[in-house]
Amino acid sequence: MTTYADAPVANRNATRRAKNRWFAQVGWRHLVGVLAVVFSLFPIVFVCSAALNPLGTLSSTELVPSGGMSLGNFSELFQRTAFARWFLNSLLVAGVASFASVFLSALAAYAFSRMRFRGRRVGLLSLLLIQMFPQFLAIVAIFLIFTTVTDLWPALGFDTPWGLFLLYLGGALGVNTWLMKGFFDTLPRELDESATMDGATHAQVFFRIMLPLVAPILAVTALLSFIGTINEFLIANVFLRDANSKTLAVGMYGLLQGNERNTNFGIFAAATLLTAIPTVLVFQLLQRYIVSGLTAGAVKG
Protein backbone atom coordinates (compact mmCIF):
# COMPACT_ATOMS: atom_id res chain seq x y z
CA MET A 1 0.00 0.00 0.00
CA THR A 2 1.43 3.36 -1.09
CA THR A 3 1.74 5.95 1.66
CA TYR A 4 1.84 9.73 1.37
CA ALA A 5 5.58 9.63 2.08
CA ASP A 6 6.18 7.48 -1.02
CA ALA A 7 4.25 9.83 -3.36
CA PRO A 8 7.08 12.36 -3.96
CA VAL A 9 9.47 9.49 -4.76
CA ALA A 10 7.01 8.01 -7.23
CA ASN A 11 6.50 11.41 -8.85
CA ARG A 12 10.27 11.91 -9.22
CA ASN A 13 10.63 8.45 -10.75
CA ALA A 14 7.80 9.15 -13.19
CA THR A 15 9.35 12.49 -14.14
CA ARG A 16 12.76 10.84 -14.62
CA ARG A 17 11.23 8.13 -16.81
CA ALA A 18 9.42 10.77 -18.87
CA LYS A 19 12.68 12.70 -19.41
CA ASN A 20 14.52 9.53 -20.38
CA ARG A 21 11.75 8.64 -22.80
CA TRP A 22 11.84 12.15 -24.30
CA PHE A 23 15.60 12.01 -24.74
CA ALA A 24 15.45 8.55 -26.32
CA GLN A 25 12.78 9.62 -28.80
CA VAL A 26 13.45 13.30 -29.50
CA GLY A 27 16.18 14.74 -27.31
CA TRP A 28 19.13 13.00 -28.96
CA ARG A 29 18.11 14.53 -32.28
CA HIS A 30 18.35 18.00 -30.79
CA LEU A 31 21.79 17.12 -29.43
CA VAL A 32 22.97 15.89 -32.83
CA GLY A 33 21.55 19.03 -34.45
CA VAL A 34 23.38 21.32 -32.03
CA LEU A 35 26.65 19.45 -32.60
CA ALA A 36 26.19 19.68 -36.37
CA VAL A 37 25.56 23.43 -36.16
CA VAL A 38 28.64 23.95 -33.99
CA PHE A 39 30.73 21.83 -36.35
CA SER A 40 29.49 23.83 -39.35
CA LEU A 41 29.93 27.24 -37.76
CA PHE A 42 33.44 26.67 -36.41
CA PRO A 43 35.26 27.18 -39.78
CA ILE A 44 33.18 30.30 -40.46
CA VAL A 45 33.94 31.76 -37.05
CA PHE A 46 37.63 30.92 -37.46
CA VAL A 47 37.85 32.61 -40.87
CA CYS A 48 35.99 35.69 -39.59
CA SER A 49 38.36 35.88 -36.62
CA ALA A 50 41.41 35.57 -38.88
CA ALA A 51 40.08 38.26 -41.22
CA LEU A 52 39.55 40.70 -38.33
CA ASN A 53 42.79 39.84 -36.52
CA PRO A 54 45.18 42.82 -36.90
CA LEU A 55 48.23 40.53 -36.69
CA GLY A 56 47.15 38.73 -39.86
CA THR A 57 49.33 35.61 -39.69
CA LEU A 58 48.49 31.92 -39.47
CA SER A 59 50.62 31.35 -36.38
CA SER A 60 48.98 34.21 -34.47
CA THR A 61 45.38 33.40 -35.45
CA GLU A 62 43.05 32.75 -32.53
CA LEU A 63 39.35 32.04 -32.31
CA VAL A 64 38.96 35.27 -30.33
CA PRO A 65 41.68 37.80 -31.32
CA SER A 66 43.52 38.93 -28.21
CA GLY A 67 44.81 42.12 -29.85
CA GLY A 68 41.38 43.45 -30.75
CA MET A 69 39.74 43.59 -34.16
CA SER A 70 40.32 45.79 -37.18
CA LEU A 71 39.62 46.00 -40.90
CA GLY A 72 43.29 46.32 -41.78
CA ASN A 73 43.39 43.00 -43.65
CA PHE A 74 40.63 44.17 -46.00
CA SER A 75 42.35 47.44 -46.86
CA GLU A 76 45.69 45.66 -47.29
CA LEU A 77 44.01 43.12 -49.58
CA PHE A 78 42.98 45.82 -52.06
CA GLN A 79 46.28 47.68 -51.77
CA ARG A 80 48.66 44.73 -52.24
CA THR A 81 46.70 42.60 -54.70
CA ALA A 82 44.45 42.95 -57.76
CA PHE A 83 41.52 41.52 -55.83
CA ALA A 84 38.98 43.91 -57.37
CA ARG A 85 40.03 42.75 -60.84
CA TRP A 86 39.85 39.09 -59.80
CA PHE A 87 36.40 39.69 -58.35
CA LEU A 88 35.09 41.26 -61.55
CA ASN A 89 36.62 38.51 -63.69
CA SER A 90 34.96 35.81 -61.59
CA LEU A 91 31.57 37.53 -61.68
CA LEU A 92 31.84 38.01 -65.43
CA VAL A 93 32.85 34.43 -66.20
CA ALA A 94 30.49 32.81 -63.70
CA GLY A 95 27.53 35.00 -64.62
CA VAL A 96 27.84 34.68 -68.38
CA ALA A 97 28.73 30.97 -68.28
CA SER A 98 25.81 30.20 -65.96
CA PHE A 99 23.30 32.09 -68.10
CA ALA A 100 24.53 30.57 -71.36
CA SER A 101 24.74 27.02 -70.01
CA VAL A 102 21.23 27.22 -68.51
CA PHE A 103 19.78 28.59 -71.75
CA LEU A 104 21.44 25.97 -73.96
CA SER A 105 20.55 23.19 -71.52
CA ALA A 106 16.92 24.32 -71.52
CA LEU A 107 16.85 24.17 -75.32
CA ALA A 108 18.38 20.69 -75.34
CA ALA A 109 16.12 19.44 -72.53
CA TYR A 110 13.00 20.70 -74.32
CA ALA A 111 14.03 18.92 -77.51
CA PHE A 112 14.81 15.64 -75.73
CA SER A 113 11.59 15.78 -73.72
CA ARG A 114 9.04 16.90 -76.31
CA MET A 115 10.41 15.74 -79.67
CA ARG A 116 11.10 12.29 -81.08
CA PHE A 117 13.98 12.09 -83.53
CA ARG A 118 16.64 9.66 -84.63
CA GLY A 119 19.55 9.52 -82.18
CA ARG A 120 17.54 10.85 -79.25
CA ARG A 121 18.29 7.93 -76.93
CA VAL A 122 21.92 7.78 -78.04
CA GLY A 123 22.29 11.49 -77.38
CA LEU A 124 20.88 11.22 -73.86
CA LEU A 125 23.10 8.27 -73.00
CA SER A 126 26.11 10.03 -74.50
CA LEU A 127 25.53 13.08 -72.31
CA LEU A 128 25.27 10.82 -69.27
CA LEU A 129 28.41 8.88 -70.20
CA ILE A 130 30.49 11.99 -70.85
CA GLN A 131 29.64 13.34 -67.39
CA MET A 132 31.31 10.31 -65.80
CA PHE A 133 34.70 11.63 -66.91
CA PRO A 134 35.92 14.93 -65.41
CA GLN A 135 36.75 17.71 -67.81
CA PHE A 136 40.26 17.94 -66.43
CA LEU A 137 41.15 14.62 -68.09
CA ALA A 138 41.15 16.44 -71.42
CA ILE A 139 43.33 19.28 -70.19
CA VAL A 140 46.29 18.33 -72.39
CA ALA A 141 44.19 18.25 -75.57
CA ILE A 142 42.41 21.46 -74.60
CA PHE A 143 45.75 23.14 -73.87
CA LEU A 144 47.07 22.23 -77.32
CA ILE A 145 43.90 23.46 -78.99
CA PHE A 146 44.02 26.78 -77.16
CA THR A 147 47.67 27.20 -78.04
CA THR A 148 46.61 27.41 -81.69
CA VAL A 149 43.51 29.47 -80.84
CA THR A 150 45.69 32.01 -79.00
CA ASP A 151 47.86 32.47 -82.09
CA LEU A 152 44.85 32.91 -84.39
CA TRP A 153 42.33 34.69 -82.13
CA PRO A 154 44.09 36.12 -79.05
CA ALA A 155 40.79 37.43 -77.67
CA LEU A 156 39.60 33.83 -77.14
CA GLY A 157 42.88 32.30 -76.07
CA PHE A 158 44.93 32.14 -72.89
CA ASP A 159 44.68 34.87 -70.25
CA THR A 160 41.21 35.93 -71.40
CA PRO A 161 37.90 35.42 -69.59
CA TRP A 162 36.13 34.60 -72.87
CA GLY A 163 38.36 31.62 -73.57
CA LEU A 164 37.72 30.29 -70.08
CA PHE A 165 34.02 30.93 -70.58
CA LEU A 166 33.99 28.63 -73.62
CA LEU A 167 35.56 25.84 -71.58
CA TYR A 168 33.06 26.15 -68.76
CA LEU A 169 30.16 26.30 -71.20
CA GLY A 170 30.77 22.80 -72.51
CA GLY A 171 31.32 21.17 -69.15
CA ALA A 172 27.93 22.03 -67.62
CA LEU A 173 25.56 21.00 -70.42
CA GLY A 174 25.21 17.31 -69.52
CA VAL A 175 24.06 17.55 -65.90
CA ASN A 176 21.84 20.57 -66.51
CA THR A 177 20.19 18.92 -69.51
CA TRP A 178 19.31 15.80 -67.53
CA LEU A 179 17.91 17.83 -64.62
CA MET A 180 15.77 19.97 -66.90
CA LYS A 181 14.55 17.04 -68.97
CA GLY A 182 13.15 15.38 -65.86
CA PHE A 183 11.32 18.62 -65.06
CA PHE A 184 9.98 19.04 -68.61
CA ASP A 185 8.67 15.46 -68.50
CA THR A 186 6.39 16.37 -65.58
CA LEU A 187 4.59 19.06 -67.60
CA PRO A 188 1.45 17.79 -69.40
CA ARG A 189 1.72 17.59 -73.15
CA GLU A 190 -1.78 19.06 -73.44
CA LEU A 191 -0.19 22.48 -72.91
CA ASP A 192 1.92 22.06 -76.05
CA GLU A 193 -0.98 20.70 -78.05
CA SER A 194 -3.32 23.51 -77.00
CA ALA A 195 -0.78 26.16 -77.92
CA THR A 196 -0.09 24.46 -81.24
CA MET A 197 -3.80 24.33 -82.03
CA ASP A 198 -3.93 28.08 -81.41
CA GLY A 199 -1.19 28.58 -83.99
CA ALA A 200 1.88 28.89 -81.72
CA THR A 201 5.24 27.77 -83.07
CA HIS A 202 7.76 25.65 -81.16
CA ALA A 203 9.69 28.80 -80.23
CA GLN A 204 6.56 30.49 -78.88
CA VAL A 205 5.60 27.39 -76.90
CA PHE A 206 9.08 27.20 -75.45
CA PHE A 207 9.55 30.86 -74.49
CA ARG A 208 6.00 31.85 -73.52
CA ILE A 209 4.64 28.68 -71.94
CA MET A 210 7.38 26.26 -70.96
CA LEU A 211 10.07 28.57 -69.56
CA PRO A 212 7.74 30.28 -67.04
CA LEU A 213 6.55 26.88 -65.83
CA VAL A 214 10.08 25.51 -65.35
CA ALA A 215 11.39 28.56 -63.50
CA PRO A 216 12.29 26.48 -60.38
CA ILE A 217 14.65 24.16 -62.25
CA LEU A 218 16.13 27.11 -64.14
CA ALA A 219 16.95 28.73 -60.81
CA VAL A 220 18.48 25.53 -59.43
CA THR A 221 20.68 24.87 -62.45
CA ALA A 222 21.73 28.52 -62.55
CA LEU A 223 22.74 28.34 -58.89
CA LEU A 224 24.68 25.10 -59.34
CA SER A 225 26.42 26.43 -62.43
CA PHE A 226 27.32 29.70 -60.74
CA ILE A 227 28.76 28.02 -57.64
CA GLY A 228 30.70 25.46 -59.68
CA THR A 229 32.13 28.09 -62.01
CA ILE A 230 33.11 30.71 -59.44
CA ASN A 231 34.87 28.05 -57.30
CA GLU A 232 36.64 26.24 -60.17
CA PHE A 233 40.42 26.27 -59.85
CA LEU A 234 42.23 23.54 -61.80
CA ILE A 235 41.40 24.61 -65.36
CA ALA A 236 41.51 28.31 -64.52
CA ASN A 237 44.97 27.91 -63.00
CA VAL A 238 46.25 26.41 -66.26
CA PHE A 239 44.69 28.93 -68.64
CA LEU A 240 45.00 32.16 -66.66
CA ARG A 241 48.58 33.27 -66.12
CA ASP A 242 48.40 37.07 -66.32
CA ALA A 243 47.74 38.84 -63.00
CA ASN A 244 44.85 40.91 -64.40
CA SER A 245 43.11 37.93 -65.99
CA LYS A 246 42.99 35.68 -62.92
CA THR A 247 39.79 34.66 -61.19
CA LEU A 248 39.28 34.63 -57.44
CA ALA A 249 40.31 31.01 -56.98
CA VAL A 250 43.56 31.43 -58.92
CA GLY A 251 44.45 34.79 -57.43
CA MET A 252 43.77 33.75 -53.85
CA TYR A 253 45.82 30.60 -54.33
CA GLY A 254 48.81 32.80 -55.12
CA LEU A 255 48.49 34.41 -51.68
CA LEU A 256 49.36 31.12 -50.00
CA GLN A 257 52.26 30.01 -52.18
CA GLY A 258 55.76 29.54 -50.82
CA ASN A 259 56.83 31.44 -47.73
CA GLU A 260 53.87 33.84 -47.99
CA ARG A 261 51.46 31.29 -46.52
CA ASN A 262 51.94 32.47 -42.94
CA THR A 263 52.11 36.22 -43.47
CA ASN A 264 49.22 36.44 -45.95
CA PHE A 265 46.73 34.29 -44.06
CA GLY A 266 44.79 37.27 -42.68
CA ILE A 267 44.50 38.77 -46.16
CA PHE A 268 43.44 35.38 -47.51
CA ALA A 269 40.72 35.09 -44.85
CA ALA A 270 39.43 38.56 -45.71
CA ALA A 271 39.33 37.63 -49.40
CA THR A 272 37.45 34.45 -48.52
CA LEU A 273 34.69 36.39 -46.78
CA LEU A 274 34.31 38.78 -49.73
CA THR A 275 34.29 35.87 -52.17
CA ALA A 276 31.35 34.26 -50.37
CA ILE A 277 29.14 37.35 -50.83
CA PRO A 278 28.06 36.68 -54.48
CA THR A 279 27.22 33.04 -53.76
CA VAL A 280 25.18 33.94 -50.69
CA LEU A 281 23.30 36.66 -52.58
CA VAL A 282 22.50 34.34 -55.48
CA PHE A 283 21.38 31.64 -53.05
CA GLN A 284 19.10 34.06 -51.20
CA LEU A 285 17.56 35.34 -54.44
CA LEU A 286 16.83 31.82 -55.70
CA GLN A 287 16.07 30.16 -52.36
CA ARG A 288 12.32 29.83 -52.85
CA TYR A 289 12.86 27.82 -56.05
CA ILE A 290 15.50 25.42 -54.75
CA VAL A 291 13.40 22.77 -52.97
CA SER A 292 10.72 22.54 -55.64
CA GLY A 293 13.29 22.63 -58.41
CA LEU A 294 15.35 19.76 -57.02
CA THR A 295 12.41 17.47 -56.24
CA ALA A 296 9.80 18.13 -58.92
CA GLY A 297 11.76 16.47 -61.71
CA ALA A 298 12.84 13.48 -59.67
CA VAL A 299 9.69 11.41 -60.34
CA LYS A 300 7.95 11.33 -63.69
CA GLY A 301 4.16 11.38 -63.78
Rank of each mutant, 00 (worst) to 15 (best):
L77H: 04
L274Y: 02
Q131F: 04
F184Q: 01
G27M: 07
G170K: 07
D185V: 04
I130L: 02
A172V: 12
L92N: 10
A276V: 15
F239W: 05
A100I: 15
A203R: 06
V280W: 03
F184Y: 03
I235H: 00
I277A: 00
L224V: 12
Q25V: 14
A298L: 13
G157L: 01
G254Q: 08
V282H: 04
Y168R: 04
F206K: 03
A138W: 13
Q284C: 10
I142P: 01
V140W: 02
F46Q: 08
V102H: 02
V38I: 14
L31D: 09
V34L: 10
G254C: 05
F78E: 03
F143H: 06
M132R: 04
V26M: 11
E232Q: 08
F165P: 01
F146Q: 01
F23H: 05
I217T: 00
A219M: 07
S98F: 08
V175R: 06
R80P: 11
G27I: 13
S75R: 13
L273S: 01
A7V: 15
V205I: 14
D151A: 03
N237A: 07
A172M: 08
W22G: 00
S101I: 03
A84I: 09
D151W: 11
V205T: 10
S113R: 02
R121T: 15
S292C: 04
L213P: 07
V149Q: 05
L179C: 03
A5G: 11
R16A: 08
A94W: 12
Q131I: 01
Q257D: 11
F239T: 05
A243L: 11
V299E: 06
P212T: 13
F183A: 01
S40P: 04
S90C: 14
L63D: 12
V38E: 03
G27L: 09
S113C: 07
L128H: 04
A94S: 14
S113M: 06
A100H: 12
L41V: 05
T186W: 10
R121P: 02
N231R: 08
L211Y: 01
A84D: 15
V250F: 02
V122Q: 11
Q257I: 14
V37Y: 02
T61H: 09
V140I: 07
R85A: 06
R208S: 06
S70I: 15
S49K: 02
N176P: 05
V238I: 08
W178A: 00
S245M: 06
K181A: 01
V280P: 01
L92D: 12
C48P: 07
T201P: 08
A18Q: 15
V220W: 06
R288W: 13
T295V: 05
A296S: 12
Y253H: 08
F42M: 11
I217L: 00
Q287K: 10
G182C: 05
V64M: 09
L124D: 12
A269W: 14
F112R: 03
V96C: 07
D6N: 05
L35D: 01
L213Y: 08
R288K: 14
S194Q: 14
I142M: 09
F143R: 03
V34A: 07
N53E: 10
L285F: 10
A172Q: 13
G251H: 11
M197N: 10
K19Y: 14
